[in-house]
Design a protein around this nucleic acid. Structure first.
Lengths: 136, 136
DNA sequence: TATTACCCTACTTAAACCATAGGGTAATAG
DNA sequence: CTATTACCCTATGGTTTAAGTAGGGTAATA
């Protein structure tokens, strides 16, 4: 299941990408428009800022703004930042690899290969789709 | 993330499919071999039985056995039975459709279309892979 | 008829998710 | 300089789900 965190994050980013000018936009504006809890959205945007997707400006007239063009923001990066690993099991994750504690041998594991297939299929989509693609 | 429930279920089914004869096999044998909690595995196999994948025989010499040939058991059915919806959001689920409460309009939702793509890619894999494929 | 092994219900623990509350702090306008 | 704005950070709690445990019931078989 996609978490609300990720969903809200994508919606907020889409909202920002949709605007004509990339001027700072207040959290409260996005929260109201997209019907997201203000405080929760604060935390999400902060995460995206730390990841390098967003930057912010303080004080009057301040707010958040995109650091890159929507076309340059891959969905795979957004997904990893908010949702975590794209793979369904840690033992096939490219960025968050971890050995399964219940698996003595990955090669003979019946689940392993199947999950690699699924990961590759998902990754293919997330790598080839950018924030811009979502606006259409 | 793939739940342990699903992972254990697939491992148990693979174990059964790997045997030469489809004679009843005791839960305890599978649990030991695959290092799965006995009681937990009981619940999982019961679910698979109710779904029509397995059947069981009581009394001495009893146990669980496959109702179909491994070749005839699609991974998509196993996944739906144990893991639930294959889609990442309810609003793009084929078998468990539900409207998103935070989404006024699916058509204009930026997440919707992306998740349909991901669902289709995953489904393509799960529909074209059977239990037999996992044994290789 | 005793044994075997499935069947069922309820409970516990731990973790993650989804917020909410409240204040701190930096930047800006005037 | 100072008040305001709006981001920044920490802590806390409710809810849900996953994962596993406990204990006994019941049907089938040798």
């Amino acid at each position: 299941m996609l978490s609300k965190k990720t969903k809200y994050g994508i919606k907020a980013l889409s909202f920002m990408a949709k605007r004509k000018e990339n001027t700072p936009i207040q959290i409260s504006v996005i929260a109201e428009s997209e019907k997201i809890s203000l405080k929760y959205l604060e935390a999400i945007l902060l995460t995206l800022k730390k990841a390098g997707i967003l930057s912010s400006k303080k004080g009057k007239g301040g707010g958040y703004y995109l650091l890159k063009k929507p076309k340059e923001i891959k969905m795979s990066f957004i997904m990893r930042t908010l949702e975590g690993p794209i793979a369904m099991v840690p033992c096939v994750s490219l960025n968050y690899y971890e050995k399964c504690d219940d698996c003595p041998d990955e090669v003979s594991c019946s689940v392993h290969k199947l999950m690699i297939e699924v990961r590759d299929a998902s990754l293919k989509i997330f790598n080839n789709r950018t924030l811009e693609d979502l606006l259409k």
